[in-house]
Every structure is written in structure tokens, then in C-alpha cells.
Amino acid sequence: MNIKKKLGTGIISAVLGLTLVGGGTFAYFSDTETTNNTFAAGTLDLAVNPTQIIEVDNIKPGDSMIRDFELQNNGTLDIDKVLLDTDYTVTDANGDNTEDFGEHIQVEFLYNADKLDEVIYETTLAELKELTPEAVNENVFYPLFGEKGLEVDSIDDLVVKFNFIDNGEDQNQFQGDSLNLEWTFTATQTAGEDK
């Protein structure tokens, strides 16, 4: 063999040896495991029963109407707070109103139907409309539910007394008028916790 062939064979052998040595330094044992994880969010589901709390006709100053309804937690998470937003519209039948009909409808939130003198909070619809939902929670629902809020699968009865205030003055401007009341209840979750 001539020198060129010997030199070429030597170089190829060296490269092959380095490749085997280099490849060997990267050999290792390995094992793989896969985990399956789930994050499932709970649900807040506040229900009001019945959904129409009051519908009356032909009321006059001095009339009172007591209605009860339920707040139900049908979700999978406890409810920390119940917020109430009040809105209403007045239909002025004769176009002669100089006052807001909502100022003449008093609302009394009561503890229960058996003890109608135990008032949680008393206001007018006009004042209730101006209150923030947080203030209503603080004045109405917190005294009723306390720190426990509304737990999963619980039902709480609420009793409301509406009074058409007889202020002893001429209230003829409200004859034939109607007031459409809309209450929007919103539930908020309890604080997050370590799981």
C-alpha cells in the first residue's frame, strides 16, 4: 500500500473512532411519564322564585302589599354576597306628575312573614334606586345571611312589604299611573382558597 492509501485509511479510521466515541458520550437511560390534570370551574347560580314578585292593580294611598320570594343557590359554589340593583319606570297617565311616583312607594325588607314588625331595612323605591348594590347588600342581605352568605343548595325566604304612602296631601297626580319595577339580583363568589 502506498503512503497515500495508508494515510487515507488512517484518517477514515480516526474519524470513525471519534464518531463512535462522541456518540457514546451522549448515550443515557431515559423514562417518560405523562400526567393528566383537570381544572374544572364551579358555577354560581342564583335563582329567584317567583320571578315576578309583585303585580297589583287599583292601589291607592294607604294600601300595603306583602310579598315573599326565595333566593336559591343552585350552583356548586357558595355565594358570598347578593347584590340588588333597582330600576323602575313610571307611566304618567295624565301627564300631570310633578313628583316621582317611586318616592311614594315605601319598601320594607322584613325578616319573615310571621313577624311583620321586624324590619331589616326601610326605604322608598326612589331611594333604593339611588343606592349602590353594595349598599343594599350591606343593609338588607348581610343582616339576613350574615357572614355565611348563601351556601350551596340553600334557600332563603325574603319578605317585602310595599306601602303606597298616604302623606295626607293631594296625591291626585298619581291616579291611573303605573310603575314598572325591575330588580336585578347579582351573586358574587366567596374568596379564593388553597385547594
Rank of each mutant, 00 (worst) to 15 (best):
T124P: 09
T19V: 13
F141R: 05
K115I: 00
L83F: 10
T123D: 15
L150W: 04
G62W: 09
L116S: 05
F141Y: 12
S64T: 15
I3C: 12
D114A: 11
G95A: 00
G192S: 13
E193P: 03
A41D: 08
S30D: 09
K161W: 10
L7M: 13
I120W: 01
D166S: 02
L71V: 09
F185D: 05
T35Y: 13
G95L: 01
T186D: 01
G95D: 04
E182V: 14
N73P: 05
T124Y: 09
F141S: 03
G102Q: 04
V48R: 00
T35H: 07
T76C: 07
F185S: 04
F145W: 11
D177N: 14
G168V: 05
I120G: 03
L20I: 15
G42R: 01
V90Y: 11
E103F: 07
G176D: 07
I59L: 15
G75M: 10
F101C: 13
T190W: 02
D85N: 02
N58V: 07
L144W: 06
T184C: 09
N94K: 06
P143G: 03
L144F: 08
I12T: 08
H104K: 13
D96N: 15
N74M: 05
F29L: 06
K81E: 14
A41K: 06
F101R: 14
V90D: 06
L83Q: 07
N94H: 11
L84S: 00
T132N: 12
A93H: 07
T9F: 15
D100R: 03
A41W: 02
T9K: 06
V136M: 04
V152D: 06
F26P: 06
Y121V: 03
E33Y: 11
Y111S: 10
E127S: 14
T38L: 14
V160R: 00
N73R: 07
E151Y: 02
Q72V: 09
A93Q: 13
E108M: 12
F185R: 06
L181D: 03
L125C: 04
K6I: 15
L44V: 09
E151Q: 11
N137M: 03
Y121H: 12
